[in-house]
Nucleic acid binder design. Structure first.
Lengths: 297, 297
DNA sequence: TCAGAACGATAGAAATTTTCAATCGATGGA
DNA sequence: TCCATCGATTGAAAATTTCTATCGTTCTGA
């Protein structure tokens, strides 16, 4: 029965019987039969059948909610019992928005010192994707914006405040300034994240609010790409202050605070709203709290 | 896997492999193998093995916690999906302390009017047993004391206040009084519940507090037995006021309030601390809230 | 309009798992 | 010491699950 619920979860992720089957490591007929059996035991159609996958019925959506919960709990059980005997082991899957990727190391490093047997997977994802992945039990935790856009059902631990700086060469226009306004930034050609990223939407909003508009010369979904360009001294970008520090400022780049308004957004750790958490996730939350306790005051 | 967790729950109830197997409708080797398989997948011993069942290991106890939760959720899922299509159906299992048994009708009657397809099982149990049954998913709800003794992990809805009266013949000593004290009651031979009942312990406490002690001429675990004796006009008892009213006072019995102190205990509906509840249990909670809303103000 | 591809359902054979009856070994009480 | 009880073990039978192969629909694009 538990495996059938896993099938249902896979189907909701993939929206395709064949792909879901592959994700579960079974053949498509097996998954089809599993779903059908689930429908029979529950006495209700769960999937809208057409010539292909259409969607779930109302009963299917409710069952999905339960499946997430039950499957999540059964994994947490396995993890917890294993942790009782062998300490924390296994895979901890984290997804972070690109601007927060660098700070993940500040969580994983002390985590690993405490629990050397844990292996990490860190994915770069948009804030929207992170919430979906969390819902579907595909990651254990995320690092994303806590304010701004709707967050959905998660538990959150604030980590730090994101403030924005113009990264540019000292020789470029504005390069000699101590601070610049968003209005001024809006007139510079920038390297920015793609518009599906929340950071980009935030910056777009700030630029529009200053009466300008974003004119990105270059877009990417990778901060490395943006930073590499800025580092040549021939491009400019807007980045969170912490990120710029982490990546390392050189003689070719200056980081200039952007004011009017001095925008601030909160980044935090998000975990499923399950109680209790899996031991792996709980340890990450503990690490996050430790981190803010040592840096904040 | 889910069925193995059911085996584990049965084993914790029965504390006996053979009985647990019978309760699950399988043979003893099947249950033994199921438990063993659970131990293998979790990688830990769950049951302390001697020549017979001894108890659970620490890992076993944690697994039991999870099993209760997971099995409970999977039942709730089935129930909820069934309710979406056919309305509320199935069995609602309630246990109540003897002094509250009569009031259960005030919950089940409006419940049945609303959901005619639901069948009820109402058991008479001690307050301690009710909590165990709730824990082990053997009942859906209980009616018991909310104050006084430790309640454990449950959600509670207060139903009413229990106040105590002396039930006795008008001809008996104290039979002509408008009120009596606990001190006075302590000198009368009484019909009382057995000492495993919390109501009895409460009354014992009140009598001791008044400097007396209980001298029951007759003990029973059934209120019907007590009431039948009182009704002959030749015995006396102490009962909650509501119960006495429900059972019906006749010319042969007077119900006399007992004061000094005027003791009050809260009776309430208790359900598992699961969120969300099963639809059957949720409907009972709704009924309970409706009941107090119409009687209290 | 039609060929081809994609999708999910179905059928039947094969493999795996589950279950049970029978029995064993150990333990504890009479 | 004997006997009853308990849980583990074994091997055969039964049930189930899974897979391969294939079918019928429904789109897509020429």
């Amino acid at each position: 029965m538990l495996d059938k619920l896993e099938y249902l979860l896979a189907l909701s992720r993939e929206r395709h019987f064949g792909h879901a089957a592959e994700a579960c490591g079974v053949t498509q007929p097996t998954l089809s039969a599993g779903i059908k059996q689930l429908e029979e035991t529950l006495g209700a159609l769960l999937v809208q059948r057409g010539s292909r996958f259409i969607g779930f019925t109302a009963e299917g959506e409710r069952t999905l909610d339960w499946a997430r919960r039950i499957v999540g709990d059964s994994r947490a059980m396995r993890e917890e019992i294993s942790a009782l005997r062998h300490g924390l082991t296994g895979q901890l899957r984290i997804a972070a928005i690109p601007t927060a990727l660098a700070m993940v190391a500040q969580l994983t490093t002390p985590y690993r010192a405490r629990h050397p047997e844990v292996r990490f997977t860190v994915l770069s994802r948009t804030s929207v994707e992170i919430l979906t992945l969390l819902e579907n039990l595909e990651i254990d935790a995320g690092v994303t914006y806590l304010d701004n856009e709707p967050l959905g059902r998660v538990n959150a631990v604030p980590l730090y405040q994101e403030r924005y700086q113009l990264l540019t060469s000292p020789d470029a226009p504005l390069g000699n300034r101590d601070r610049v306004t968003w209005k001024e930034v809006s007139e510079v050609p920038l390297c920015l994240l793609t518009p599906d990223m929340q950071n980009r939407r935030i910056i777009d909003g700030l630029l529009r609010g200053a009466g300008g508009s974003a004119q990105p010369t270059l877009e990417s979904d990778s901060m490395i790409v943006l930073f590499a360009h800025v580092r040549t001294g021939r491009w400019a970008s807007v980045m969170p202050a912490r990120l710029a520090e982490t990546l390392g400022l050189t003689a070719t780049i200056r980081a200039i605070p952007i004011v009017e308004p001095e925008a601030v957004h909160t980044i935090g750790l998000v975990v499923p709203p399950r109680e209790p958490l899996t031991p792996l996730a709980a340890a990450l939350v503990a690490e996050a709290k430790r981190l803010v306790a040592t840096t904040d005051p």
